[in-house]
Design a protein around this nucleic acid. Structure first.
Lengths: 119, 119
DNA sequence: CGCGTATTTAAGCAACTACTTAAATACAAA
DNA sequence: TTTGTATTTAAGTAGTTGCTTAAATACGCG
């Protein structure tokens, strides 16, 4: 890359350097946050996460009923969320309950609050 | 859909109904939030947004330099962000400066704070 | 006006996403 | 152990994403 036009006459070299350094320094934090946002950015999954926040725990069947989607489709969303430690599961008899992990519940709280206010 | 197994013996019908209603009621808010999160969930765009938050305004060239990506690639990210009113632009002489819209700056502030703390 | 810098757009492509359907597992309870 | 309910997984597919390269615009300034 790095070809092409825009051979800038004026560029704040100091600013560019400072920004580069900052981005590199907190690269891990970017990964951590986009790890969560990437998944929460999907409309269906945001609903799943909000529902888990409100109801504390739900099984794949509940979510399937509520969202009007196949169990399989919901299950595959839950798997992604679980793989990234955004939710956790707990079996009780035949039913597997899903709930938010504390860490990501906290991270997404500002959005749940916005959703709560619009009830 | 709605075929298949999971002919649940026990399901909290009231809970299902309540959740359905709630989801429908705030459907617009879900759209609003996932509108923002969908785009912020991309690692590159999250960086762009954070940089705009920190520096107030940057042109496509600056971002290209900082992120080590082609101008074209960055430009296409900026377009998406602009289409969804997450950023706005302002021309000054030959350079077009990008900055966050107030609305989404506020919405994403919690994440910028987390990133700020990890400097 | 026409030149040069800055920026956007178009076309193409490999990789990824969200779903579908059908089959496989998991496991509690009889 | 077998049965039945609950859940996950595999394979396939249409649509989307993020980039590349090359070409097109936009517009300030001499």
């Amino acid at each position: 890359m790095n070809n092409n036009s825009c051979i800038r006459q004026q560029a704040d070299i100091k600013q560019i350097g400072r920004c580069k350094d900052r981005i590199t320094a907190i690269n891990g934090t970017f990964d951590y946050i986009s790890n969560g946002l990437e998944l929460a950015g999907n409309n269906v999954r945001l609903k799943i996460l909000f529902l888990l926040y409100e109801e504390k725990q739900l099984c794949v069947c509940d979510l399937s009923d509520i969202l009007g989607m196949t169990i399989s489709a919901v299950s595959q969303h839950l798997r992604k969320l679980k793989d990234r430690k955004i939710i956790k599961t707990e079996r009780r008899a035949q039913i597997i309950f899903n709930s938010l992990t504390k860490e990501y519940e906290e991270m997404l709280l500002p959005f749940f609050k916005i959703l709560d206010e619009n009830k």
